[in-house]
Amino acid sequence: MGSTTPPPPPIRACLFDMDGLLIDSEDLYTIVTNTILERYGRSKLPWSIKAQLQGRPGPQAGAIFHNWAQLPISQEEFFAEQSILQREHFPNTQPLPGVPQLLQDLKQNGVHIALATSSQKGNYHLKTDHLAHLFDLFKPEHRVLGDDPRIPAGRGKPAPDIYILALKVLNDTLEARGEKLLQPEECLVFEDSVPGVESGRRAGMQAIWCPHPELLKEYKGREREVLAGLTGEHKEDEEEELRHTEKEVQEGKRRVGMPGEIDDGWGTLLHSLEGFPYDKFGIAKRI
Rank of each mutant, 00 (worst) to 15 (best):
S48K: 12
L71F: 07
G41D: 11
H125S: 07
Q104V: 14
T5E: 05
L85V: 11
L134G: 10
H271S: 11
A132F: 07
P195K: 01
D129M: 12
F78I: 08
P158L: 06
R42C: 09
I162K: 06
F281A: 06
L134D: 08
G178W: 06
D237N: 13
L71W: 03
M18D: 00
P259G: 10
L188T: 01
N92F: 10
Q54K: 10
L21C: 08
H212N: 14
R224W: 08
R150E: 14
V194I: 15
P140W: 00
Y40T: 08
G110T: 12
R87A: 14
P152R: 11
T231R: 14
K127T: 03
L145M: 09
D192N: 09
G41W: 06
R254G: 04
D264P: 02
D192E: 03
Q108S: 13
P195N: 06
W68R: 06
E198M: 01
L165N: 01
L174Q: 05
A166N: 05
H244L: 13
R42E: 10
T35W: 02
N171V: 13
V256T: 12
I283W: 03
F276V: 01
L15T: 01
I64G: 12
V249P: 01
N92W: 04
E238Y: 04
Q75N: 14
N34G: 06
Q54G: 08
T30I: 14
A207L: 00
P59L: 08
E76H: 15
W209A: 03
M1K: 13
L182F: 03
L102T: 02
D279Q: 15
D27W: 04
F276R: 00
F78A: 04
P8Y: 00
G229A: 07
R12Y: 05
E88F: 09
R56K: 15
T173H: 14
R201Y: 06
E225F: 09
D24I: 13
I262T: 07
I84H: 09
I164H: 00
E186F: 09
K139E: 13
D105F: 09
C210D: 00
L71H: 08
E179K: 12
P152M: 09
G58L: 14
N92M: 14
Q86L: 09
K253S: 12
T245F: 07
A51N: 01
S48N: 06
L15Y: 03
A63K: 15
P160D: 05
P95V: 09
Y40W: 13
T117D: 09
T173S: 15
L216G: 05
R143A: 07
V144Q: 04
Q86R: 15
R222A: 10
K44G: 13
R202W: 02
P57L: 10
I151W: 00
V256P: 03
S48W: 07
E236A: 13
C14H: 02
